[in-house]
Simulated scan of single mutants.
Amino acid sequence: MIRRLVALALLATAAVAPAENPQFQGADPHAVMIDGELWVFPTGGPGGSWAADRFGAFSSRDLKTWRPRGELIRRDQIRWIGDDGAKEHFLWAPGVATRNGKWYLYYSVGPQNPTPSRIGVAVASRPEGPYVDSGKPLVTGGPGPTGRGFEAIDPMVFTDRRSGKIYLYAGGSAGATLRVWELAPDMVTIRREVAVPTPPQFTEGAFMHERRGTYYLSYSHGRFNGPDYSVHYATARSPLGPWRYRGAILTSDARRQGPGHHSFVTTPDGRTLIVYHRWEQPPAPAPLKGERQVAIDRVRYAKDGRILPIRMTEGAASPVLRPR
């Protein structure tokens, strides 16, 4: 217990040692550019500090040295978390969004069994918080509209610049079902669910981005702790499909396994990066051992808009941020 508390104190105050790929220990990273600095909101973080009961954030101006941004919210600050009667709960897979000067932290509360998983949302005036929970779950898992089961995990919020509508993407694992809702402008209320097909090879971890009129729905495929974990994508002319499956873009190689649960981010100079987690080990059967590591790599597009296969890097080959 004392060791964990010390780790958490360091998480909130100390700079993370200079690093290249892999950047630091953690998983499920949601990356956002804020004032020329790359912020990462992960499950866990450097120093082995993941206790599954709180979220932190980390930022960097060069992708070499990371600044801990402190504690965002703790499990014991979410009053409704024990309403389901389950004996234990874990927090994972955060996603953030901003609107009208406020920041919104969406997060998964699990596990799925014996009670359904849930997605919550908390609000802050700054990206580093502190965040205050909205007071109730935003989405609860269960049978789902397809009858195959729905696990309420891995939230991602996307605002469509064309229509101004705000969409929440979530789901995966149990039933491997994708669901989408339109959010009200307050960002903490669901306006309606929008029926969308689940794309081929979808398991979890949906992420939406738009480029030159094409909407890219990317997601993780495979077992989260297996070598088949990978990133696939589909495209559409709207953020709601119909999807055209385009294949895998990030897969295991001879030195790194199970890359996935990612986010895309555009740097101030117009480049696109993918931020994801992986295991630093050669091929092995599931379950992979050790801790997941956050890594960052370059994304390149073909002239026809396809995402080219992404090559995982390490050391000096890792991307850096260029000064503004």
Rank of each mutant, 00 (worst) to 15 (best):
T177F: 04
L217V: 01
P200A: 10
H221E: 13
R126E: 14
F264M: 12
Q25D: 10
V188N: 12
M33A: 00
L8A: 12
H277C: 03
Y229S: 06
R322V: 13
F90G: 12
G258C: 02
P116H: 08
F207P: 00
D35C: 01
P94E: 08
V16Y: 11
T146M: 09
K102A: 15
D297I: 02
Y276S: 04
G56V: 05
K136L: 09
P227G: 06
A97G: 10
A86Q: 13
A302Q: 04
K87M: 14
Q281H: 09
E210Q: 12
R126H: 15
E20G: 14
Y215V: 06
G144M: 08
S220K: 01
Y215M: 01
P42C: 03
P130T: 11
D133E: 12
D228E: 10
A302K: 05
R278W: 14
P116L: 06
D83P: 07
A86V: 11
G149D: 02
G135H: 08
K102E: 15
P137T: 04
L183H: 08
E280H: 13
P68M: 01
A170K: 01
H277A: 03
Q257H: 03
G171Q: 04
G222Y: 05
P22L: 09
R99C: 09
Q23I: 06
R74F: 09
K102D: 13
H89Q: 13
W80H: 09
R99P: 11
S220Y: 00
A248Y: 00
G175F: 10
V109W: 03
G135R: 06
V96R: 11
I190L: 12
V40H: 03
P287R: 03
H232R: 08
A9K: 11
P42V: 02
V32N: 03
A176G: 07
G222T: 02
K102V: 12
G45F: 02
R79L: 15
A52Q: 15
N21W: 11
P259T: 00
S230G: 01
V231H: 00
A9F: 13
P127T: 03
A57Y: 04
S252N: 02
L38N: 00
K102R: 15
G260N: 01
A236W: 07
S49E: 13
A124C: 12
R298N: 10
G36W: 00
